[in-house]
Write a protein that binds this DNA or RNA. Structure first.
Lengths: 140, 140
DNA sequence: AGAAATTTGTCCGTATGTATC
DNA sequence: AGATACATACGGACAAATTTC
């Protein structure tokens, strides 16, 4: 693989992508980001480049890294996006599994799932809707 | 010590050796491989290099690792294309807006949306499914 | 039941060699 | 030549899950 750095350096592009995920709620506040090893695979970047990207997030207050544990998305990032003119509404509800979700979770169609929905608005427009589904009763 | 990686990288050589032991039955299916600490001594490689070799085995479906327990040799079926060996599977597709999404985004029902789906697995079970919806053609 | 040891998971910092822009 | 990035490798430290005593 060549090393094209048109415009922006890779670590900056990666940092932007991760910031987008944090501010949009794809990575919810307080959640762990994927470990460096996974990020290297996802972005096909070397560990050094990934670490540079994470350093950018830390410097901007979007993430916090703990030795031996991982890198957290900061809750502060949410309010940052809020003050930036976007608005986020959240809600949690119980829904019935459709065929697709049932197949994924290995439950019957109609089985109860917890749906966590996050609606991100910028101005009057909705920019993103994120729905996270989990089993309502723990899998054992 | 310097780090000459002439020819094949060390983790690759080590992975090959371990695969040989598994396929030849020296390490029978279901048995635990030696712990990383022992492998570092055997191959005189750093732990990181050993873990890289083990990652190759996992990716090839030859071994399975459990936190705090160890790495098992798999009774190897050919699970290469199936699981891919990764924890998170992602895909992106275009879907039609249902009534709720249409109302949120302010588009007509059936209008095209980009759906980004991420399926997180723990072991064999799906632990979470996240779907993020965005407008397919940015409205600005 | 509880403490210690084992083992894997993750991050830190550093270093070398290679390749491309 | 310099900056960026990749792949590889080392050693150390802390965290978390599991097993053992």
């Amino acid at each position: 693989m060549p090393t094209p750095h048109y415009g922006q350096p890779r670590y900056h592009v990666i940092a932007d992508e991760l910031r987008e995920r944090i501010e949009s709620g794809v990575i919810p506040p307080g959640a762990l980001l994927p470990p460096e090893s996974v990020l290297t695979a996802e972005f096909r970047a070397s560990r050094g480049t990934i670490r540079q990207a994470l350093a950018v997030l830390r410097k901007n207050g979007l993430a916090t890294t703990e030795h031996g544990r991982g890198t957290y998305a900061n809750a502060y990032a949410f309010s940052h996006a809020l003050s930036g003119g976007s608005d986020v509404q959240k809600r949690e509800r119980e829904v019935a599994a459709d065929a697709e979700l049932a197949a994924l979770f290995g439950v019957e169609i109609g089985a109860p799932l917890i749906e966590f929905e996050s609606v991100t608005r910028k101005g009057r427009n909705v920019s993103a809707v994120t729905r996270t589904y989990r089993l309502s009763s723990p899998a054992y």
